[in-house]
């Protein structure tokens, strides 16, 4: 296979010209998200450029401690982003969400890197960082949807929680409908995506590998494994985030604390 055709900086810059189309449409139809789009674009350019520089350095060193530190940074950023987007109380949720993320990453990485790929060097930056990043990136989206559904459900449907807790005498049964709703809302898009993958969408990892010169059969095997890793990782992360959070969000009477969501 040939190696990937490189993109020059001029070609990359010219690619940005495509943005003229959506920006023009937003302007013509007076959809005032132009500023947000441009800020997002600039942030993406800066962040990815910095990551490219940093990753080149980190890949070169390929040090287990440094790679693990980088993964920890990714976990922290994911947790803080989730807390901010769901408007949760920082103090109450940092610990449970961190523990949930670290546990899910450990399980998925041990399985994927240790068992499936049987890497001689488990912390190899080429595998450890992108695969963990893919799991964490997806978990971020699903956690935001799932935790938002769960905590808003508990806050807004307190009558249902009281009804179930009183009449069953069992907190697990009382929380079950709220957990079910959160998991369904979070995972439904991924289930839909899995069911049409290859038909109406060619996922990024597979496309990237093919562009990078891997045979399609290898790319597909990786894609299947990464989809499994993402689904399992996201599910474990969300479940554990909910279960660990439950230890902090109720008072001594098993009543939901008033300050779990920040006032907007």
């Amino acid at each position: 296979m040939n190696s990937t055709a490189d993109i020059s900086y001029w070609e990359l810059a010219s690619g940005l010209l495509l943005f003229i189309i959506p920006i023009s449409l937003f302007y013509i139809y007076k959809i005032w998200i132009i500023k947000d789009v441009l800020i997002g674009l600039v942030r993406m350019l800066i962040q990815l450029s910095m990551v490219a520089l940093y990753l080149e350095w980190i890949f070169e060193l390929n040090n287990a401690w440094l790679n693990s530190l980088w993964v920890l940074v990714m976990i922290f950023v994911g947790v803080f982003t989730t807390i901010r987007r769901v408007s949760l109380n920082w103090r109450m949720f940092v610990l449970p969400l961190l523990v949930a993320s670290i546990t899910s990453v450990l399980i998925v990485d041990l399985f994927f890197l240790g068992w499936v790929l049987k890497l001689d060097y488990f912390f190899d930056a080429r595998y450890f960082i992108p695969i963990t990043g893919m799991v964490l990136g997806n978990a971020l989206n699903h956690n935001i949807v799932g935790l938002s559904t769960y905590f808003k459900g508990l806050s807004e449907k307190s009558e249902l929680y009281i009804f179930l807790l009183s009449n069953t005498g069992n907190k697990k049964l009382a929380l079950n409908p709220f957990i079910t709703d959160a998991i369904k809302q979070a995972l439904n898009p991924m289930i839909a995506f899995m069911s049409v993958i290859g038909l109406i969408s060619l996922p990024g990892m597979m496309t990237g590998q093919i562009l990078g010169g891997s045979p399609p059969s290898t790319a597909i095997k990786y894609q299947i494994m990464i989809m499994i890793a993402i689904f399992v990782g996201c599910t474990i992360n969300l479940f554990l985030s909910i279960l660990f959070s439950n230890r902090f969000i109720f008072d001594a009477y098993s009543n939901l604390k008033a300050n779990i969501l920040k006032k907007k």
Binding site: K157, E159, L160, I162, F163, S166, G169, D181
Partner: peptide
């Protein structure tokens, strides 16, 4: 807090107009 579980286990709660899942 110490007795609440025992107490709730003796009580049936019938609310008005509850939205059920």
């Amino acid at each position: 807090p110490e007795n609440i579980k025992t107490i709730r286990n003796k009580i049936i709660w019938i609310p008005q107009n509850i939205n059920l899942p």
